[in-house]
Design a protein around this nucleic acid. Structure first.
Lengths: 226, 226, 226, 226
DNA sequence: TATGAATGAGTCTTCATTCAT
DNA sequence: AATGAATGAAGACTCATTCAT
């Protein structure tokens, strides 16, 4: 974002290193909980020198968001454009997304948690990109539904389930050493696509729920606040 | 001596109101991004009076976490103890959880985002409770697997999918006016349980993936950072 | 100080109780380190009711100072007026002062430490009284010197030694359970009066000091700051 | 990489200046009565820059205590180790202590008054050092008693008299312009050592006291509180 | 007489940012 | 390219005091 002419050749590399470290720190202690001086200490630079590279603290946050959103969108576009069945493309996207998540968990933490600290314009830009990504996924689901590969359902709801399943993975991925993105993707897609398949009918369970509600007279199972 | 130490009868109610408002503000601007004075302004109290009710800012955060975790755990325990099939119990739990989420989205935002700003002990307590919740869900899946209602899979992986799907809902729930927890729960459970059903076999798709990989020679679909 | 008409009969007693407790707390945690609410808790009163008795926090401090200075001055005047030898009177005063110190160490702590927190007028008043006390003691020493009971020395220096010796006792008195004011007084006065007696001549030691200074060439024994 | 963490060469000097000024202010208005901003104004620094030097307000207090206690202990140890008579060593110590007191009265004020505002560990450390100092003085008195230079008395009581006499000097030293530590030391030691000398016997005065008590029937000379 | 509640100025402290060198 | 130093606004929190009831 901020690279201007007049900087030496090492500038860009150093800059990226700083962002790397910032992402790590932000992920662990939160954007608001991490001080500029702390980042400086981690990189081995005084605050003054740090500003030579970063411009501002918010800039750092913007860069990290970009680092997540740019490849994500690029990936989604490239894959969506493939001449393959929608489910296969979704499966490929799933794996690519999970790879991204596993590769740099810290970035994803920041991406998911701290975009609220972005000021107006940057925030809007990020949100717009998220919608773009979602639209691509929605579109793929729509194709699959029209295809007949999936049952007739709201493609947006399908997309949200896909997104929920993948996005929330960053929460626990660190504690599952050994788990491979490819395997996880297979499992996720298996659940999603079979769960949404033509044959699937939830009639039985929902009927059972209804019967239970009639029969049940114990303490409330739905929540009321306070 | 007629002393009556402690607080008047209105105190607790006022206190809860303050927490309500704080949750709203924290949800919008983040815990770190919300000032005590700002909360005071929202409630109509000076900082001094505010502290009379809250004790400390962190206390507010703790209280909000409790408000989420306590009913969540209580619900999970009560439902898990029912004498019903595991899938039905999971379905009931799903709905209860979604009700909780929809009812107080702001609390869930804070619960998911800001627990990192808790100091040591409180943080540990919250994390412990989360594990307890997860164990209950895992247990139900394990039962369903042993039952034969679900295919043979890692019950923890099943639990994580259940959790991912539900937890991440807070992200977009506000923008889906009209969506009922009951319907969403039906959809989620349908996907999950059919997707994990005995019959389901992902052999076909995975074979297709393999063929694709062999055939494909375009730009990389997996991500490498930077 | 603050007793106004319109107060019930229990008022004054209660007021004194509050001052008692305040002295204890001030002694332990310092005037500035003790909150009004803390005093209230100790007495069993809310802050509102407390103010009914005390008027202000500074008032409390003033009262405590008075409680020390008034009996001290009264004592000194009464004893100085006795028709006895100056040394006997000093000895009697010594004991009375030590009794005062031992009886209410907490008051003395406050008296010695916290008069700096008094605002202008009260502070001036207290300092004036201290001078009055010192003048009485000086006068007694002057008599003894003129009497020939003590050697010819500056009566003010004599007074300061008397005062130093007694005043600083509060510092450690609490840790000397069992020590009686009368015995301590005997010891103090013995040291002082024999040390200042006609016969006493410090020529020998001072000569020795001079010889040592000439002979000594080790590291400096006098201090230079930093 | 050319980083040079830490502080510039002027830092330590500036830091000491800040402590100097803080000591002055604390001495006049008390530790609790002096605000950080006030110190900043006195040094010509904003609060931010001030903290760059001091770390915390309590640190300032600790530093001042150290500035008193460290030279005091060093002095005591060096002097106690000299191969001279115990009384000469006490006399030398007396002078050194008084020099210290006269040189930086403000530090001594803070040292004597405000150590109560130190939190746990620092407070304990300071108290320990005070005991070490007292033990050295006690030891010297003990030697003098065993020597026969002083009469047979409790060496701790002797030490306390020595300490009282010296320590309390800070109270009035400022108002005695022209008084030299050496002269004051000579006077103090003269009083103490002759007063505690072998020949001294307080039999006469104490007998007189007894006779007086019997004879006297006026108002109480001993104090009863309130 | 006493209470709980409210005030608001004041406290110490932190931190992103700037700048002379 | 980098440093140390300084800024100053903002942060959380405290506390003596007041007041309606």
């Amino acid at each position: 974002m901020g690279r201007k002419p007049g900087h030496g050749p090492a500038w860009e590399g150093r800059r990226q290193d700083v962002i790397d470290l910032a992402a790590e720190l932000f992920a662990n202690k939160g954007y608001a909980g991490t001080g500029i001086a702390e980042i400086g200490r981690a990189v081995g630079l005084g605050t003054g020198a740090l500003y030579y590279y970063i411009g501002s603290k918010e800039n750092l946050l913007i860069e990290i968001q970009e680092r997540v959103m740019q490849p994500l969108l690029a990936l989604a576009r490239r894959i969506a454009a493939l001449d393959e069945s929608p489910l296969l493309r979704l499966r490929l996207l799933s794996e690519a997304v999970l790879e991204l998540i596993f590769e740099r968990l810290d970035h994803i933490w920041v991406y998911e948690h701290d975009y609220r600290y972005l000021s107006g314009p940057s925030r809007a830009k990020i949100i717009m990109r998220r919608h773009q990504f979602e639209d691509i996924v929605s579109g793929l689901f729509q194709e699959a539904i029209e295809n007949g590969e999936l049952k007739n359902m709201d493609s947006k709801l399908a997309m949200l389930q896909f997104t929920n399943l993948h996005a929330h993975t960053y929460t626990w991925a660190a504690s599952m050493e050994g788990l491979k993105p490819a395997d996880l993707s297979a499992s996720y897609c298996s659940t999603l696509f079979f769960g949404m398949a033509k044959a699937a009918s939830d009639g039985d369970l929902e009927a059972e729920v209804k019967r239970f509600r009639k029969r049940y007279h114990g303490p409330s199972l739905s929540h009321t606040w306070r």
